[in-house]
Design a protein around this nucleic acid. Structure first.
Lengths: 248, 248
DNA sequence: ATCCAATGGATCGTTACCAGACCATTAGAC
DNA sequence: GTCTAATGGTCTGGTAACGATCCATTGGAT
């Protein structure tokens, strides 16, 4: 059948240029699927040790065929990010966090756009949530996400995930699908930038303090203060990133 | 999201459920391409009479093969939205605005999300632009977009396009790609909702007055006022839509 | 009158992706 | 011990979308 297969090279599905019929919408579906899975892990949707949904279900969620999803999962398995077990009560489990892609070049426009859009989204989300009446469950989830951030002062990776979870929690409390998905996408872009700069404990502690204040403003129904604090928080990250990454 | 199925389709290569290998990313590429073209026309990127980019270029813009783009263009041609002429200095031209899809059911969640996200985006955009120093060209473009809205009191369709152009102009002046594309997408969703409700001249005039005030606030560099006016403007539309469309 | 460059129009071979069916494995229920 | 349901693993056939190439048409430039 195939005449171009070389012995010894297992040809791991795909990597570089995709010569043949490569499909639409921002690269091919295979890479999109990998990116989607990595993003979910990086943003703390699935923590280390968690079980991913069953392949058939996960494929439906990502709107991709099971075959393509499996290709992507095998790639992640090869990279050591997940492992799979067969049988009932089996599944695919997250084993470790993906390592950051520090190789890629930084587009100066990307930094500007990501960081400014994040400011817009998170300021709005904080204000909106502060204007709402939260259910007891929601209050518990929010405070839990906040305190979780404080429990880890070990690695940058761990903190990044919990930090993302906290901010996405606020976005989710707006119950606005558009805002939630935009926040997730933007958060992931900001995270990719944060991976390029050193991890500074002082900043982390300051961030945690700000988180606490934001939660307080939300729970005391003070929209203006919540928005203002969220803006300050985002601007802190913005200055940090610009300082380290922006070309002079 | 995307619904562009028309009755009386002569046999346009494809129609309802796409039995075979249908590809990822929110439906198939073919329908996505049609939706993208319709959106550009509805949002005033290409006005009636304008020439679309050459097929090869347009295909690259939409990130789609020329073959698929042509399928979509033929569909639009059949529907009478565009016409094509061969030869040098030929091209594909917009002949009329697409008619609204009033058949589709209204998802109550869709109304809520679109309208609230629009408030977030447009309020932020107005504030950001008001904080900037605009170039003379930008000032001219903004005021032109504003006055254009006042020139047409004929049809709802025409006003809708010019109104969209005005608001997208503000978004574009932020120079934030994310915000621009989010605004365009959201604007199109809101437009689809506006197509379901009666066209009220009084409201249009009021909208135009508000546009004028927003431009004034932007040009006088008054971010708070610009944001406040944009919020009022969006809330006006929100109440109108909720009043007509929300289930009791 | 001829040429030319830019455009729409048509065809061909390749492949990425899909749907669905089936197999293999496993832990708990009975 | 056997059964069962849920899961990962494998295979097959079909097709939508792709890149590439060539053709057909046109209005201006030469």
């Amino acid at each position: 059948m195939d005449g171009a297969e070389e012995p010894g090279s297992p040809r791991p599905a795909v990597s570089p240029p995709r010569p043949g019929g490569q499909h639409a919408r921002g690269g091919n579906v295979f890479e999109h699927t990998i990116a989607e899975l990595l993003r979910a892990i990086r943003l703390g949707k699935y923590l280390v040790g968690d079980k991913l949904p069953a392949e058939r279900e996960l494929a439906a969620q990502i709107r991709v065929s099971r075959a393509t999803l499996r290709q992507a999962l095998i790639e992640l398995q090869t990279a050591g990010i997940v492992t799979s077990r067969r049988g009932r009560y089996g599944g695919t489990f997250v084993t470790r966090l993906p390592s950051a892609d520090t190789d890629e070049r930084i587009d100066p426009g990307e930094l500007d756009d990501a960081v400014r859009f994040r400011l817009v989204l998170e300021t709005a989300a904080a204000r909106i949530v502060a204007e709402q009446d939260l259910s007891p469950n929601e209050v518990a989830a929010l405070t839990a996400a906040e305190t979780d951030c404080r429990t880890v002062f070990a690695s940058a990776e761990q903190f990044r995930v919990l930090d993302a979870r906290f901010h996405l929690m606020i976005a989710e409390l707006t119950h606005m699908p558009s805002l939630i998905s935009a926040s997730a996408a933007t958060r992931d872009r900001v995270n990719a930038l944060l991976d390029r700069i050193p991890f500074i404990h002082t900043n982390v502690e300051h961030s945690c303090d700000q988180h606490r204040e934001i939660v307080d403003a939300i729970l005391t129904s003070d929209p203006d203060r919540a928005a203002d604090l969220a803006a300050q928080h985002a601007e802190g990250t913005e200055k940090l990133l610009r300082g380290f990454l922006e070309q002079r």
